[in-house]
């Protein structure tokens, strides 16, 4: 991995401890760290991992929905879905740009993704068998993503926070369009209502898993919170998300598939059934329903697009040569 070296003339006269103290003071004062500031190696590494995973998730996330563009029920639905998938591509690009400011190249990240050395959100390894899954993805998956992402707008690394602000602004349309797909199905025929309920049953638990393992089993969380990359714990965000879903499910006339879900006045939180982490770990380890297919598709797209990238580079080179000659 190539890392942008801090400029020797600027920082050469400071030793590591002083630089670390300056960094700590910026974090303590809730100031942002910018690309050319000195930062601890572990902070840079954590960010590269998190931001590139996040970018990969957006890019892979285009697939389960892209799959439905040609089959969406109306022209308007197709147009909406296309806009949403285009947004995901945009979000991936904002995030790749943010990761690139940390010294990793786009090619390296792409390589890591298509050789399965990088992770992406395991949620995208589930199949989307019905149109109602488009609704459930928008409502639950994008909803969980928003819940995770809003606090990331205040992440201590400037370019990441700025990318997140832009993403969150665009993401709210995604959740609403999903909600409305489900609402329409839920209020439709009996078969449509059932289709909506089954999609919610499929996506509810995986969307809760998107917040990551429980706090006491999330080893990296404490450090990320100390660095103010992460602002709330996995369980806090999961609780917040469930709290938002309950009244929304009522409006939809659909049931959240957890018989033990209820507000616990005493503890001030939602009681819920145990999450099946074995499933989560299986999917994370690459044994989910669609892992291989997603990566294969991404690899094919990258390879099929090679001639376009080569042609663009050749054209740019030809024009530059012509300009040099004219000068």
């Amino acid at each position: 991995m190539t890392l942008t070296a801090p400029d020797a003339s600027a920082t050469g006269d400071l030793d590591e401890a002083e630089l670390q103290a300056r960094f700590d003071a910026l974090i303590e004062a809730d100031q942002r760290i910018e690309p050319r500031d000195w930062m601890p190696g572990a902070y840079r590494k954590t960010l590269i991992r998190q931001i590139s995973q996040h970018a990969h998730s957006e890019i892979i996330g285009m697939q389960p929905e892209g799959n439905w563009i040609s089959r969406a029920p109306t022209l308007k639905r197709k147009a909406i879905l296309m806009a949403k998938v285009q947004d995901e591509a945009g979000h991936g690009l904002y995030l790749y740009s943010a990761a690139q400011t940390l010294g990793i190249s786009r090619d390296e990240m792409t390589e890591q993704l298509i050789t399965s050395r990088a992770r992406y959100s395991s949620i995208f390894n589930y199949p989307t068998p019905t149109w109602a899954d488009m609704g459930a993805i928008g409502w639950l998956v994008d909803g969980a993503a928003i819940c995770n992402q809003v606090p990331l707008c205040r992440a201590s690394y400037g370019p990441y926070g700025r990318a997140m602000v832009r993403i969150c602004k665009e993401e709210s349309f995604h959740q609403r369009q999903g909600f409305e797909i489900l609402l329409e199905l839920s209020q439709g025929t009996e078969a449509q209502h059932r289709m909506a309920q089954e999609a919610v049953d499929r996506w509810y638990w995986p969307s809760l898993m998107m917040f990551g393992p429980p706090d006491d089993e999330s080893p990296n969380s404490a450090q990320s919170m100390a660095w103010k990359i992460k602002r709330f714990s996995n369980d806090e965000l999961r609780q917040r998300f469930v709290g938002m879903l309950v009244p929304q499910a009522e409006v939809l006339g659909l049931t959240l598939p957890d018989p033990n879900l209820r507000w616990n006045e005493e503890r001030g939180q939602w009681d819920m059934s145990e999450i099946d982490w074995t499933e989560f770990n299986e999917v994370l380890a690459g044994r989910g329903p669609a892992n291989a297919q997603r990566i294969q598709h991404r690899r094919d797209a990258h390879e099929d697009g090679a001639w376009v990238r080569e042609a663009a580079a050749a054209y740019a080179e030809k024009r530059a040569a012509r300009e040099r000659q004219a000068a």
Partner: peptide, 11 residues
């Protein structure tokens, strides 16, 4: 000083 993001190996 290198520009952030303009790293070696970037196509």
């Amino acid at each position: 000083m290198p520009t952030p993001g303009d790293v070696a190996g970037e196509g």
